[in-house]
């Protein structure tokens, strides 16, 4: 990591657990550790990609950073301010710098409001006057390629790709510094995916946005990210810059994920690592390393000791006993 880059977001030891089955007597009270001790930084103008299976806590991490969910423990600092300690009003003032792009753009728009009303809403909330609002909205929809005569239409009159572009326009309306994109292309077909991803990178170049890009699709993550974090069952298992992660994945889980990317070359031998079993329940995660039940290299130590988060190579973090032992 280049020391000249400015650290915009720093997440330290972030934890979130949800109580389930809580009743009067709390007999069956249990908790799900959706995010368990995750730390990373995001640098200004860059994109951190978060990848993992569904249910691994990547979306929860995004919402915790934006303070849409209150963390159980840990801190999130944005531009040097700890967001978890801000008062309600101070947090509201910061919120305009922190925005979210949703996976399903149709449900994220009020079905009874025109696109124009929906785009106006964040600007009104922060007291922009009507002349400025109109100017900003026209610039925005122009940037995302929606004709201005469509402004008075309702969400159900648009296609999925158009709606996601509107969703992006709305997230960027307040000129935020940091945007969490929660699987923004997962519900779209391939050609539209490329369009949305290009739009996001173009806007990033133009306005120096910082993204946290959440996806389960490794090729999308590869295309978008400067750094990539791999999550498994609420924990981050590996974090590195893109090239080093794709060239030398260290964690067995990352290796398995990368080997699953289809390669468009029939002559190339495929060496897929097949993971056995299912992802365990987060209510009762395996002891020690959470990946050990599915890891092809698991040893005794993996069941007893939680692997440490170590910077094995420069700017390349991994939590795995096997890899760490091999390096010693």
């Amino acid at each position: 990591m280049n020391s000249q880059k400015k650290e915009l977001i720093r997440v330290s030891n972030l934890k979130k657990s949800f109580a389930i089955n809580k009743g009067w007597r709390r007999k069956n009270a249990q908790e799900v550790k959706a995010v368990d001790d995750v730390s990373f930084s995001i640098f200004e103008g860059e994109t951190l990609g978060l990848v993992g299976e569904s249910g691994c806590g990547k979306s929860t991490t995004g919402r915790l950073i934006l303070q849409l969910l209150a963390p159980t423990a840990g801190t999130v600092s944005f531009d040097g301010h700890d967001l978890t300690k801000l008062s309600k009003h101070d947090l509201w003032r910061r919120r305009r710098d922190l925005q979210l792009i949703f996976q399903d753009p149709y449900s994220a728009l009020n079905p009874r409001m025109t696109i124009n009303d929906s785009l106006n809403e964040p600007l009104k909330a922060y007291g922009e006057n009507s002349k400025n609002r109109k100017k900003t909205i026209n610039q925005l929809i122009d940037a995302v390629g929606i004709p201005s005569q469509y402004l008075n239409r309702y969400p159900h009159e648009f296609s999925g790709g158009q709606l996601q572009r509107i969703g992006i326009a709305r997230a960027l309306a307040l000129k935020p510094k940091f945007v969490v994109a929660d699987e923004p292309v997962a519900s779209l077909d391939m050609s539209i995916q490329a369009q949305i991803l290009n739009l996001m990178t173009d806007l990033q170049k133009e306005f120096n946005y910082t993204y946290l890009f959440i996806s389960h699709d490794l090729s999308v993550i590869d295309y978008m990210s400067n750094h990539i974090g791999v999550m498994y069952l609420g924990k981050m298992v590996e974090l590195a810059d893109r090239d080093s992660l794709y060239r030398t994945p260290l964690h067995p889980y990352t290796q398995a994920l990368l080997s699953a990317i289809p390669i468009a070359d029939p002559n190339r031998a495929k060496n897929k690592i097949m993971l056995k079993g299912e992802i365990p329940s987060p209510v009762d995660p395996p002891s020690g390393c959470r990946f050990r039940t599915r890891c092809p290299f698991a040893k005794d130590i993996c069941a007893t000791k939680n692997p440490e988060w170590v910077e094995l190579e420069k700017d390349h973090y991994v939590a795995c006993h096997i890899v760490q032992e091999a390096r010693q």
């Binding site: 934006l66 849409l68 509201w92 919120r95 305009r96 922190l98 925005q99 979210l100 949703f102 399903d104 449900s107 994220a108 728009l109 009020n110 079905p111 009874r112 409001m113 809403e121 964040p122 909330a125 922060y126 709305r170 309306a173 307040l174």
Partner: peptide, 23 residues
């Protein structure tokens, strides 16, 4: 999601009630 979206964009609670929930 649209309620969460409104909240995440800084819309005040009473406005969310009036403009998003009630209609």
């Amino acid at each position: 999601l649209f309620i969460e979206a409104a909240y995440s964009m800084g819309v005040k609670q009473y406005k969310i009630l009036l403009r998003h929930l009630l209609p």
